[in-house]
Design a protein around this nucleic acid. Structure first.
Lengths: 152, 152
DNA sequence: GCTTGACCCTGTAGCCACTCCAGGGATTTT
DNA sequence: AAAATCCCTGGAGTGGCTACAGGGTCAAGC
């Protein structure tokens, strides 16, 4: 199977497949005489595994750990549990941030209804008010939103 | 005010402040004889505005647009509304993805309870099953999760 | 044989919003 | 005088791709 075929079979971009090889998530396939990569069924399955994990937003470093368990079936799976638990905790933390964020934006959006000049715009007023440390509609009564992207 | 004082006053990292200057979100302050940046109250307010927008996960490019409205109060605010609406739509899309993700991870986590070898691990089995295109506990009956990071 | 187009290769740069570091200079505190 | 703290610039690194530039390879059609 050439890279284009693997790409079509899995729906993964050709460039992404090459990226996974460079990142050592996918073992380097054999090359045909012209230098083209030639993949096997095993590669396809491994790639599908990776994409499934990525659909669960599991970072590539953790995917690599999971793959090492696939390769050594007799090892203890405790770490797998921990990894999934950690992923779940991360997702839940983000979820909470996102929900707070939505509430804040809805409140902010409510400040502006009819079209008018920027100087009269409730949204802008709210954002400027925040610059003065005043209470603002969007952040009033809500917990501070964590920068969840850091925790990834 | 020197950069360290501004940093303490706003809670924004010194490096981040310099980054905002380079990204032209914060106007370059005057320099004292020794070359140190000297900030005014206006800089502090602008920085607080930026951070408030970032707390709402508004991208820096959009923050820049909002700042341009702050600077020209007589312009029409229609675009502000659109911008906040777009941000809200983005957050809601992410929220939906995150919720699906949580359900999937909970289902996946349920596959493994007691410690055992990796070869018997339900989680790993599920993930491998996905590689065969089979129905898996985590993605069974749920809509496909979008890679929301692309839509940002 | 020659062109067209689809496919493949390597290597590098860009995205976002920072964050960190090296290697230096200035200032303040002990 | 030494040590600690602050400040400067410029560049590299993060994650997970994505998008080139600048080539080579191959099958089909004229």
């Amino acid at each position: 199977m050439r890279i284009g075929e693997l790409s079509k079979a899995t729906g993964v971009d050709v460039e992404t497949i090459r990226y996974y090889e460079k990142a050592q998530l996918l073992s380097a396939p054999t090359r045909s005489d012209n230098g083209y990569r030639t993949y096997t069924q095993a590669h396809l399955e491994r790639l599908a595994f990776i994409r499934h994990c990525r659909a669960l937003d599991i970072p590539l470093a953790d995917v690599q750990r999971l793959l090492s368990f696939v390769d050594s079936p007799q090892s203890d799976c405790g770490e797998i549990d921990l990894l999934i638990d950690a992923q779940l905790a991360k997702v839940r933390a983000r979820l909470a941030s996102m929900q707070a964020l939505e509430r804040q934006l809805v409140a902010l959006r409510g400040q502006c209804s009819a079209p008018h000049s920027a100087s009269e715009c409730g949204i802008l007023h709210e954002l400027v008010a925040a610059a003065h440390g005043e209470a603002c509609a969007c952040h009033r009564g809500t917990k501070e939103v964590q920068a969840w992207s850091k925790s990834g």
